[in-house]
Structures are given as C-alpha cells and as structure tokens.
Nucleic acid binder design. Structure first.
Lengths: 317, 317
DNA sequence: AATATTTTGACATTCAATAGACAAGTGTGC
DNA sequence: GCACACTTGTCTATTGAATGTCAAAATATT
C-alpha cells in the first residue's frame, strides 16, 4: 500500500519547490524575505529546506496571486483562508468562461419537452433533450433544463395536468440521457472514486443520476448503483471500489426513523475517511440529524458541486 | 526452489554499474567516499563488487538527484523513502507538463490540448477535447476552443515551437471530433440542405469541418464532402441533394487565378438559386472577386453564422 | 602488455544565499 | 489627469558551499 503519506519531516530543496509550485527560485526567496510567506528551515550550509506544508501553502499563494490578488495582501493568511480564496476565484473564472448559457433558450426546450411528454412521443422527446445537451453543454443543461424540467413536471403532476405515465416517461428518458452523458466522460483510473445511489425505500433515482453526472463532469470516477439499495450493499460497493465518498439522494421521507437508521448503518459500515454526502429535498429536512452523524448535505445542484470540490481536500491528483 | 535467479550475491564490477545506472565511475566512487551512499563489498584485490540492491539504490539516487535534490541530503535515506520521493517527483513533473489537467475554462483546455499534441498523446488529447465538447456545448466549443486552438497551433508551428506532425495530429483529432459532433445532430428530411467541401487544390479540411458543424447545429442538413474536390463534383453533389447552398473553405491561395477559375466553374454549374458561401483566410483575400461573381464570404465563424441565417431567406424552419 | 580499478587531492562548475538595483505595473493623493 | 510612492517580479554581483570531473600514481586483472 501507500507509505505513511506526506512525510512530515520531508525537507525539499528550493529547486524541487520551484519545480512543483511553478514559482521561480527568485520569487520563493523574495516572498520569504519581503512578506514572510513561509519560513523554511535551513540546512547545515544555510540552504532552505521546505516542508510539504510549505509547498502546499506556496501552491495556494501561486493560485491566488495568479488570479489577480497581490502577494502582499495574502502572504500571511492562514492556509484555509487561502484555499477559500482560491476556490472563489476559480468559480468566478468559470462563470466568466461560460456566459453563453443564457443564450440558449432553456425555457423553450422545457416547454417543448413537456409537450412531447404529454403526447408520449418518446422519439422526439429524446431527440430534443439530446440536442439540448449537445448545444448547451452538460452543466448548463443539468442546471438550466434537467432540474427545472423535473420541478415543472412534478408541479404539473401535482396539479393534475399531467398523468403519472407522462411524468414517468419524462423521468425515464431524462434519466437515460443523463446517464449516457455521464458515461461519455471517461476518466483515468487514478481519479478519485465516488459511489452514487439511493438507499432502501427510496425509488426516486433521477436526483442520483443528476448528481452522478455532475461528479463525472468534475473528474470523479463514478460508480453509479441506481435506486433502492440496502446500506450494506452500498457500503460494500464503496469499500471494494476504494471510494473516497458516497452520495445518496433522498427525495421522499415516509418514515423518518427508518431513513435515519439506514444512513447510520451506512456510516457505521464505511471507513471513517469516506465521507457521506446527502442530497435531494428529503435530505434538507434531515439536515440537522445528518450533520450530527457527520454526513454532509447538499441542498441543490450548486451546493452539491461545492461539496464535491470541498470533499476532496487538497490532494486531488 | 530456483537455482540461480538474480544472484543474491551478485557482484558487479564498477564498469557494469556505471553502465546500468548512467552514473560515471567517478560519481560512484565519490558518492561512496563522501556520502556513504552505498558500501559495496570488495574483491580480493580491493575492487568494488556491487550487489543488485546497490544498483537499485543508485538508480533511485540518480532519479531523485536528477529531480533537483542534492545528493548530500538523500544519500543515506532508506530505499523506500527514496522510492517515495522519486514517485512524488515524477507525478509532480507529470503535473507540470499538463498544468490545467482538470480545467474547465477554455484557456486551460487549449493549453492542455497543445501540451497533449506536443507529447503526441492521442488518447488524452481526444479525451480532453471530447470532454470539453460535452462540458461547454457545441457552439461554445467551436467558438471558444476549436477555432482559437487551431490559430494557436498554427502560430506555434510558424514559430517553430511545434512540429508539423504535432500540428497534423491536433488537426486530425479535432477534425474527427468536430465531424462526430456534427453527425450527432440528426435532422429531419424537411431541413434545408447545404453542401460543405473544399475545392480542388485545397487540402486544409478543418475549416470546412467547423463550418459543417455549425451548420448542423443551426438545423441544416449537411452533406459534408471533405477536401480537394473538383468543382464539377461539388456541383453535381449539390444538385442531386437539392442543396440550397454550397460552402467552400479556402485557406491557402497558391495560384489566385486557378482558385478563381474553380469557383467560377462551381458557380456556372449550380442553379442560380443556390448560393455559394466562401470562408477561411484565403477567402478574405479574394473577397472582392468573390463578391463580383455573386458569392458571399464569411471571414470568421461568427460571420459564417450570419451568412447561414441570412442565406436561407425567410423560410427557416 | 594492455586494460581496469583504486586512492588521493586538486580543480572547475554548478547551485544556493544575500543584498541591492531596477523596470513595469498599480494604485493614490492632490 | 498627473506626479508620486508603492508593489512586485526579475536581474546582478558576490560569496560560500556542494558537487562533479580530472590527473597521477599505484595496484589488480585479463
């Protein structure tokens, strides 16, 4: 197996640190001299000896300064703050990169999809949705079409303007498309793994599929198990896959205690370093209990994204 | 069990070790004398006799010193620590070669694609680009990645920082992906048709592929013929397909007259209500002549989009 | 005899540290 | 709007340490 991990006493010379951080040796020295960004130990002849923590810190500093912040402002900030800033800048950059999401007509697509579903026209429904994915890109589709479409369909069904069969058809087609999209993201074996499923008693699978697609898009290797699985099954899959996290979607909570028992069973059968992330409408109502047992919750797709990125710590490779 | 195997008592003279490790004999001796890196046994006359373990150790030392660590610091570390360091440095170097490995913004994707192309790593190049298409959507990809990427590659090649083979690899992979994307847009038979090709003498096909993909995205039914076709061929294809328009990409104009002759031939063999749209760098330089013969020009992808929409008259479906 | 290897010391080169200078950029006060 | 100071990355010169290479003489191996 792996060694003990980052040897705490590992002492890296400046050349290695420059290579790893992408900062020039001059910058490393001047950041230390002028701003006290790090304080490496010294070797016998006075050479700097950096620790792994120093490297991590410097990498963060590189990230936030590259994003436009001045080194003088951030040099002495604690590591967590730096990580938060880096994340903030990253999403800002991403937002700037895709301002086009609005240019496509998400509302029109949703309206059309509902109409096709009402007509039980599978072929056209499927084609319209596939086309939308290709046109808009996955993230915009999931965010701007899939999620609202499901909400709309639910509302329509609730109001009696849509039959169960029409609503099921829509979910099932959407599910297939989302999963197919997810599978099209091939990731190499070194990627971190995540298991996505719903626990016993929960048959609404579509939320899990959306979550799986987003995780795949974020570079995770997703093991998608589908719906209605006992906690033991999920835990065993996670263990044998070497997963870093398990995501469960909770939509409908009929019996609060039963659901919580399932979750507790899952927690107890997973290694401590595997995190549990719960999402879906039902998860919100259980948020307090979930937090108490050390599970994280995501109340929507954006929150899910945040949890995904946060959960990996700094050691994403 | 086994008889000889890798003789545990293997005794290699210094010349062999120098050959196998890539270290000079002087270095072998001085590492031993000054840093105690290894302590080979001695033969009757005092010559060093290295074991296989010594060789392995020296190879590791060679690796980590090459990565920037000083021999004095690592010489006496245990073998497993050395292996861990070597591995760390290796992944760090890998990382550095492809800085934006999981990046979601267009710039990062472009940088990465260029790096993959330089490394002639087809698999990763293809995966990165496919992922980008799925992530961003077709139009954002064509506009924000494909076109700038081609420009960058051309510039790099021009500056001698990229070999023809690397540039060709990139074009060819990009071409495949763009075409596959185009084909994934199914259109019904009632859609208007457009023929896309390059004329005889023009072998740069990638511009035509981009144009074809955009047309498909716009709802056209595209008949994509590829590169280097005589005007008669293109015209006959357009006639038999009932195309409303013919798009030709012109990149390189070696003989101005020949190119214009081809275009004139195409014009004369097409029905009057079929428009010709020319795009690409070469088309710009011929813009005046093209206008004179009634062909329209598009100087970039945005312009091409405008022409596509304008050209159909009012009956766009 | 020809070729290898060892030991030792000297030497050259590379690497890293320090301090300071400098240019380009960035804001800031008037 | 403009001069001014400040910020920041880079560059230089110098020093000392670390490291690789070389030469010479002696000994061993083939």
């Amino acid at each position: 197996m792996k060694a003990v991990g980052p040897t705490l006493v590992a002492r890296h010379p400046i050349a290695v640190v420059a290579e790893r951080t992408g900062l020039s040796q001059d910058v490393l020295r001047v950041w230390e001299r002028r701003y006290g960004a790090v304080e490496p130990a010294r070797g016998a002849g006075g050479q700097r000896r950096y620790t792994d923590a120093d490297i991590e810190r410097l990498t963060m500093l590189h990230a936030v300064t590259a994003a436009g912040r001045s080194i003088g402002q951030v040099a002495t900030l604690p590591l967590e703050t730096l990580a938060a800033l880096a994340e903030e800048d990253r999403v800002a950059r991403e937002r700037r990169a895709f301002p086009a999401a609005a240019s496509h007509d998400a509302d029109g697509i949703i309206t059309n999809a509902l109409a096709f579903a009402r007509a039980l026209d599978v072929a056209r429904l499927e084609e319209a949705l596939r086309r939308a994915v290709a046109l808009m890109g996955v993230s915009a589709f999931l965010d701007g079409v899939a999620a609202p479409l499901l909400r709309r369909a639910g509302a329509e069904w609730h109001a009696g303007r849509m039959s169960p069969s029409q609503e099921h058809l829509l979910s099932s087609v959407l599910h297939d498309i989302v999963l197919a999209t997810m599978r099209s993201f091939t990731t190499d074996d070194s990627a971190q793994r995540i298991v996505v499923a719903t626990l016993a008693g929960e048959r609404h699978v579509i939320g899990a599929a959306l979550a799986a697609a987003i995780a795949a898009m974020e570079g995770w290797r997703v093991i998608y198990l589908g719906a209605d699985l006992p906690a033991e099954e999920v835990a065993s899959a996670a263990r044998s896959a070497g997963a870093r996290a398990v995501a469960v979607s909770i939509v409908y909570v009929d019996d609060r205690r039963r659901v919580l028992d399932e979750l507790r069973a899952l927690r107890s059968q997973l290694p401590a370093d595997v995190s549990i992330i719960a999402g879906g409408a039902g998860a919100e109502s259980l948020a307090a209990d979930l937090a108490r047992m050390g599970a994280r919750t995501a109340s929507n797709l954006a929150g899910w994204l945040v949890e995904l990125r946060a959960g990996t710590g700094a050691d994403v490779t």
